[in-house]
Amino acid sequence: MKIDILSRSTTLYSTKRLLEEAKNAGHKARAINVLHCDIKLEKHKPSVYYHGERLPVPDAVIPRIGASITFYGTAIVRQFEMMNCFTTVSSQALVTSRDKLQSLQKLARSGVGMPKTVFTNFGEHTDEICEQVGGPPVVIKVLEGTQGIGVNLAESLEAADAL
């Protein structure tokens, strides 16, 4: 099987391990820096170019798309999907996973257990918001943060108000 791993660098631990394990399993695997890819849009002929050369369609792609390049990386994954290439993570799943609110809404709709969550655009009624989730301590998150950035623990109503 020919596998392309879409990653920004072969020095990333996860990318190295994926390459090693794919080769150990007898597959031909290579890392493709998604930022060096171009897509060609043409009627019924989707294609991806890498360093100016058209890529042959692999049997599968494994997206390793960082949050900072979600928009561009998702476009490349979507192009591979248009080429009927199997992908371990769909372009739509990538977009959804980067949207905290949409992810929580889908999890709640599917019946997945999760902490009570309130989404608001009006932070002046902090006491009411905290009451809706059972009172302090509460976790307050911004929608745009990743990897723990923008996550705060408020031990009291006063701390929640300050945040």
Rank of each mutant, 00 (worst) to 15 (best):
A93K: 07
P56T: 09
T117Q: 11
Y13R: 11
M82K: 15
E81Q: 11
G66R: 11
Q79F: 01
V34Y: 13
T88L: 08
R109I: 01
L101G: 05
A31I: 01
A154C: 09
K141G: 10
A108N: 08
A93F: 03
I129V: 12
V34T: 15
L55M: 15
I3S: 03
H27R: 08
N84E: 11
I3V: 15
K106C: 01
M83V: 01
L153P: 02
Q102P: 00
S97K: 04
G52I: 07
V77R: 03
H27N: 14
G134Y: 06
D127C: 07
V89M: 13
Q147D: 02
K16C: 04
K100E: 13
Y72R: 07
Y13V: 08
L163W: 10
S7H: 06
Y13M: 07
D127F: 09
V142F: 06
A22D: 07
E131Q: 13
A160P: 06
L104R: 14
T87M: 04
I140Y: 05
V139I: 15
V151L: 12
E128V: 02
A162L: 08
S9L: 11
V138E: 06
E144V: 10
L104G: 11
G135Y: 06
T15W: 10
K23V: 14
E158H: 02
E21Q: 11
V89P: 02
G135Q: 09
Q132C: 00
A22T: 07
I69T: 13
S97Y: 05
S7Y: 03
S47I: 00
G111V: 07
R64A: 05
D38A: 07
T15A: 15
H36L: 13
A162D: 03
I3Q: 02
S14W: 01
N33A: 15
F119D: 00
T11F: 09
A67C: 03
R98H: 14
R17M: 13
A93P: 02
G148D: 03
H36W: 10
I129G: 03
L19G: 00
K16W: 03
L157I: 09
I32M: 09
T10M: 08
A159N: 00
N24A: 13
F119T: 12
L6G: 10
N33V: 14
I39Q: 06
M82W: 05
L35S: 11
F71E: 14
Q92L: 11
G134S: 03
K106F: 09
E155W: 01
A31R: 12
A108D: 10
M114Q: 15
K16Q: 15
G148V: 04
A154W: 05
Q132Y: 00
L104S: 14
T117E: 10
Y50Q: 04
E21P: 00
I149V: 14
A108K: 14
K2A: 02
L6D: 10
K100G: 13
G134P: 01
T87I: 04
E128W: 01
G148N: 03
K23S: 12
N121T: 13
P56A: 10
K16G: 01
Y50S: 04
R109P: 00
P58D: 03
S9Q: 12
H36G: 10
G123I: 13
F86D: 08
C130F: 08
E20I: 05
V34P: 02
I149E: 13
V89D: 12
I3F: 04
G111S: 05
G66W: 04
E20G: 00
